[in-house]
Design a protein around this nucleic acid. Structure first.
Lengths: 123, 123
DNA sequence: TCGATAGTTAAATAAACATTGAACATAAGG
DNA sequence: CCTTATGTTCAATGTTTATTTAACTATCGA
């Protein structure tokens, strides 16, 4: 019934929680993917991450990312659209997100962040 | 008997491990304190962090910081001197450590990083 | 050689974490 | 209305984590 989800305010965003969130490979991949697609569209929905983990596991990671202030979730019909809270993060921790994203990009292979580009399903 | 401790090479430093290390408040405080004192002397020994946690707990955190490549430990007599692996981190993840340290500095109070400056013991 | 100092190791514990599967809820579309 | 597609919730699992206490090792200096 709840049309909106709880998010921390900008000021409530905490450094250790953000770092902890980014330290998990699955969540780092989510954030990375979100950042990659940003110039195309600033939002992605849950299903776009199905390659990274099972559905219910993703729900768990999305909640962590939302709770720590890394992303914003918008409910629309049966979909939840997410976007990075770039502005808030930049205001709170200048340069941090970019540094993490650049570092992740450098290690994309090692971290297995390389988007599978919607590989054709072989059913 | 081991005069030297094992450290990862520069190339072996992994982003998720580094972020995870920095996400713990105690370890973030250690790194912050290490960075603060850097212009005075690049090294500090275990005892300099006694305010942050118990001795054996510190040993645990030091090991994590060493294992992930954030700091270097040098054994000298009964002391172990630590320093940040700034160069290696900058080479691997440009701008990351500085961004974290600046973010931490902004939140120093909230994170209780404010060095107690060897407050006089009130016994 | 003795005692103090610096730090490690080991074992125990409680809490937090990531992952899974099954059941559920909600909305869109025929 | 019924079905399908999206995504959530809940409980169970096994793992990792941070912390504490106590016993230990090793070095320095008197």
């Amino acid at each position: 019934m709840s049309r909106t989800l709880p998010h921390p305010t900008r000021e409530q965003i905490e450094l250790p929680l953000v770092l902890d969130c980014l330290s998990d490979p699955t969540r780092l991949a989510i954030v990375y993917q979100l950042a990659q697609q940003e110039r195309v569209s600033s939002e992605l929905c849950c299903g776009d991450f199905n390659g990274l983990a099972g559905k219910s596991n993703l729900t768990y990671h999305f909640a962590k990312l939302r709770d720590c202030g890394l992303m914003q979730t918008r409910v629309a019909g049966t979909n939840r659209f997410m976007r990075l809270r770039r502005e808030d993060l930049e205001a709170r921790f200048p340069g941090l997100l970019d540094a993490v994203l650049k570092s992740a990009a450098k290690d994309a292979e090692r971290l297995q962040l390389v988007a599978e580009c919607d590989v054709v399903e072989t059913d």
